[in-house]
Design a protein around this nucleic acid. Sequence first.
DNA 1: ATGTCGTGCAAAGCACGA
Length: 270
Amino acid sequence: MRIATWNVNSVKARLPRLLGWLDDRQPDVLLVQETKATDASWPAAALAERGYESAHLGTGRWNGVAILSRVGLADVTRGLPAQPPFEDLAEARAIGATCAGLRLWSVYVPNGRAVESAHYRYKLDFLRVLADQCPAERAELGLDAPFAVLGDFNVAPSDDDVWDIAAFDGLTHVTPAERDAVTGLQQASGPEAPLVDLVPRASADPADTRQPYTFWEMRMLGFQKGRGMRIDLALVSESLAGRARAVWVDRDARKGEGPSDHAPLVVDLD
DNA sequence: ATGTCGTGCAAAGCACGA
């Protein structure tokens, strides 16, 4: 079974590449972020033609999350219970579903913009609410049940997860508070039931020893210069981590004409 | 220092977000 997460940076702009990627890589489940679509403009029919059911949450222009599955899509939850609003609006940043017995969440964590800004506090609040919610859902399912939160966290868990930590001095994505918030989510159900950060290989090539970045700035030729960040994460229950046979970044999806600024993170499970 | 995209508004070039 293959599951993947991908910030597509507009499903409308990315549709040819998204459909081509589904044809090439044949994921069973794909969690999508930054669709920039409304529910009405979500391309459900084109996905259904390829055998994917899908559930989308979005209001257009910004944000938007979705789950595609060809192995069943049940118990869809749109938004986090008690999700904090930003400027009085509940943004489309989380959607959950059960696919082939796996409880999966697709999340698009707020960017944070600048340290100590209102948006930064919103980012930390969002992660806290996510950490509050997961234990309740996991307790209901059973702590041994396969559970995962995947998506664009906009947090690099360690200094090695950015191309040059010195270049991030004073910036978001690398602050202790952001990292602690991610760790807090991982530990939210207690030390006996962590969510494991499945660190990928840098590409599909098992011999690839580069850092496994998932995002490169569009500006300043970030990809071409290797200026990447590992900010798309798969945080999975131990029951799922034990089934992971390969975890890798599909760098090829970041190449060529009209890519997203993120590459898919692929998890191959027994 | 900046360099690119994508979107919406409104009908070209900004403003915004990343």
